[in-house]
């Protein structure tokens, strides 16, 4: 399938997974609106990579926790290309906190994370919905996490926010159909700056080796893997899919079996 001339907004699109999604959308011919909050240079570099693939791309600054900024982001896309077809709610944040250290998270830590991961997604969908409706068509993909399904991840506040995002996905799938489809992708692990920024390259390497030892597929996921799942759900071929959480985790949610020999 192709996404020729479809207009897609990717929040947090300058770096990591968001950048991989933008490039994947560009390769399918979509026009991409790359949102960023701080990473202006990275967003411009990602836009350049989209253009090198023959697609149109613009960058727009917005903090998705700020409703006026969300509305402005959507308005900018619609003014530029006259329509909106796809929204990828990818912007997200966390605070690393050891699971057994109950003092590591303050009330404000929770609220800061919810403001982006939960309220941000809500505000983006609210701002986009009228344009999807006037199209008669729209696809939202929320970037959630396996942590939101099984209660793991960088912190309690983060896992709870993704649990809320999964619930929002169900709620919106029911209330926005049949014109608008709303789905979520739940990555298990992805090697990105999400981990290397706080843990360093050595810390990231350790996590990769854990994945290669412990997951059923013996594999560490990449942003490109997750981007493909997101694009699958955003694509027209998935027009009968709504309200799902698609897990891409090398099988991590199945648990680890002891080693057995097989030929």
């Amino acid at each position: 399938m192709t996404m020729k001339d479809k207009v897609a907004i990717v929040t947090g699109g300058g770096t990591g997974l968001g950048a991989a999604v933008c490039i994947g959308l560009a390769e399918r011919g979509a026009r991409v609106v790359i949102n960023y909050s701080r990473s202006a240079d990275e967003a411009e570099a990602t836009a350049q990579l989209c253009r090198e693939r023959g697609a149109e791309a613009i960058t727009v600054a917005a903090d998705v926790g700020d409703d006026a900024a969300c509305r402005n982001l959507v308005q900018t896309a619609v003014e530029k290309w006259g329509r909106l077809d796809v929204l990828i709610n990818n912007a997200g944040r966390t605070k690393f906190a050891a699971p057994n250290d109950l003092d590591a998270l303050s009330a404000d830590d929770f609220l800061d994370i919810y403001r982006i991961n939960v309220v941000g997604a809500y505000q983006m969908i609210r701002a986009s919905a009228p344009h999807f409706r006037s199209n008669g068509f729209g696809a939202v993909v929320n970037v959630s996490s396996l942590g939101g399904l099984i209660g793991i991840g960088t912190s309690m506040a983060y896992a709870c926010s993704k649990g809320a995002l999964n619930t929002m996905t169900l709620f919106f799938a029911r209330s926005l159909g049949p014109e608008i489809r709303v789905n979520a992708v739940c990555p298990g692990f992805m090697a990105t700056r999400w981990f290397s920024d706080p843990l360093g390259e050595a810390g990231l390497q350790e996590l990769i080796e854990d994945q290669e030892r412990l997951t059923p597929l013996r594999r560490a996921g990449t942003p490109e893997d997750i981007a493909k799942a997101i694009i699958f759900l955003a694509d027209e071929g998935s027009e009968h899919i709504t309200g799902i959480t698609l897990i891409s985790d090398a099988g991590m949610h199945l648990g680890t079996l002891p080693d057995v020999k097989r030929n």
Binding site: P216, L217, R219, G221, T222, D225, I226, K228, A229, F232, L246, I247, S248, D249, A250, G251, H253, L254
Partner: peptide, 9 residues
């Protein structure tokens, strides 16, 4: 191979 990271889904 688009779903090379997906199993048990």
């Amino acid at each position: 191979d688009l779903a090379i990271n997906v199993t048990g889904a």
